[in-house]
Simulated scan of single mutants.
Amino acid sequence: MNSPVFASLIPVVLFIAIGFLSGNRGWIRAGSVKDLSNLVFMVLTPALLFRTMSSVHLGDVDFAPIAAYFAAAGLVFGGTMLLLGFTSLAAARALANMFSNTVMIGVPLVGLVFGEAGLVTLFTLISLHALILLTAATVVFELAAARERAGTPGHEGRSMLRTVLMAVRNGIVHPIPLPIIAGLLYAQTGLPISLVIDKPLELLGQALGPLALLLVGVTLAFTTVGSHFRAALRIALVKCLVHPVAMAAVGWAMGLKGMPLAVMVVAASLPVGANVFLFSQRYEVAQDEVTASVAVSTALALITMPVVIVLVTRFLV
Rank of each mutant, 00 (worst) to 15 (best):
V216E: 07
S159A: 11
V113T: 06
L75T: 06
L112Y: 15
A286N: 04
H129G: 06
L44N: 02
S159E: 10
A182W: 10
K239C: 04
F123E: 05
V276G: 10
T224A: 14
I66E: 11
A64M: 14
F123R: 04
T45M: 14
T219E: 03
A64D: 14
S37C: 06
A96T: 07
K257G: 15
L36C: 10
T121C: 12
K34E: 15
A150S: 07
Y186H: 08
V12Q: 03
L237I: 06
M160L: 13
C240K: 02
T304P: 13
A72R: 01
V120M: 02
L208V: 09
V43M: 09
F123N: 04
V56P: 09
F77S: 13
R93T: 13
T135E: 08
F6Q: 11
A301E: 07
V307M: 15
V76W: 13
F15G: 00
R149K: 07
A130D: 14
A30W: 00
G151L: 10
L112Q: 15
V294A: 04
A91Y: 05
V43Y: 03
M98I: 07
P177H: 05
A292F: 04
E116Y: 03
A145W: 13
P46G: 01
V61H: 03
A130L: 14
M259F: 00
A150E: 11
S37H: 13
V33P: 02
A90T: 05
A232C: 05
R149W: 01
V250F: 14
P179K: 06
V317T: 14
T124P: 01
T313C: 15
L214G: 00
A232R: 00
I180P: 01
F6P: 06
S54Y: 03
N38Y: 15
N170C: 08
Q287F: 11
R169A: 15
I176C: 12
A150F: 11
M1G: 13
F20S: 09
R234T: 14
P306S: 05
R314N: 15
N170E: 10
H243I: 02
K257D: 15
L201G: 03
F229C: 08
L48W: 03
F20D: 10
L128E: 05
P108E: 03
L311Y: 06
R234F: 13
A7D: 13
L161S: 13
G190W: 03
L128A: 12
G171Q: 00
I172G: 02
I132N: 03
L143V: 14
Q287D: 08
F15E: 14
V5P: 07
R51H: 07
E202D: 14
R158C: 09
D35A: 15
A73K: 05
F20L: 01
I176H: 12
D198N: 01
V285D: 02
V265D: 09
L316N: 01
L165N: 12
R282V: 06
V263W: 05
V242D: 07
L82C: 11
Y283W: 08
A71N: 10
L191G: 09
H243F: 13
M264K: 07
V296R: 08
A144S: 06
A167T: 09
M53S: 00
L213D: 07
K257Y: 13
D35P: 12
R93S: 02
E116I: 12
L9H: 10
H129E: 00
E142F: 02
L203Y: 03
G26I: 08
F63Y: 08
F50K: 01
L302D: 03
H174A: 10
S32W: 14
F50C: 04
M42F: 15
R25H: 12
